[in-house]
Amino acid sequence: MLTTGFKLFFGFAVVALVGAAVYGVASGDLSGKDYLGFVDPSSFVGVLSLGWKGGVGDHSGYVVLVFATVSAAYLAFTLVGFRDADPEAVARLGGSGEIPPAAGPTANNVWPAFGAAAAVVLLLGLVTHAAVFVTGLILLAVVAFEWMISAWADRATGDPEANRELRTRIMAPFEIPLLGAAAVAVIVLSASRILLAVSELNAVWIAIGIPIIIVGAAVAIVAMEKPSRGAVVGVLAVGVLAIVVLGIVSAAVGPRSFEHEEEHTDEEALVTEVAR
């Protein structure tokens, strides 16, 4: 028996196929004045040979309609093969005759959002610099790996808590050092951009000021009787964010001109002088 899903997609396939045939034939004459298109006999050959032997008017539209037919027919036959994936049909797959429950919600996971952010980095890299592109690729690879581990851990046992613990035990030894190293690298890179962008004197002041602020904040937190976790995290987050944002701005502004460049220029001048 033909299923509803089959009828839906096969209907679309038939409509697209008829559309392809008519369109392929009727678009044969693109230069004439006629409104409904001049029917060129060679168009029939083109349509019947799926465009292989030419004769189709607008190849692009014709091929899109043929592929719509193929896609819809593929879905139609897949669904009829699966009996529309009706719960009763799926129950027969397992042998027990019981309808397996549909998948429940998954545990929270940062990787989908992180993956989208990595995709943005990748796109930015395609436009800006190969290094950014490679960073995006690496991030996407990390996401793919983490996703794979999470997907496995979700079904490792029937106990969600044990699954979480299992995932953490496997991944934490990799994640914590790598994330820590990445965070340090980002902060160092950002700080270096800031110090390179400002004047030499200001760089000295910043280099003195930032450690004082860090020590001051740490002393303040230690002095608190019961420092709240939220406050500590908040202070750290704001601090890191400030450094990263300033680093990005500084990178955009570019480094100041350095003395050694001038020396280099002098050197070049000297070489030129000697050459003369």
Binding site: G19, Y23, S27, G37, S60, G61, V64
Partner: peptide, 22 residues
């Protein structure tokens, strides 16, 4: 929904697409 399918109707490749019977 199916009658709304318009990905084939690309004027770049067929400037007279709006005159086609389909």
């Amino acid at each position: 929904a199916f009658l709304s399918f318009g990905a084939y109707a690309q004027p770049v490749y067929n400037a007279r697409v709006a005159q086609q019977p389909v």
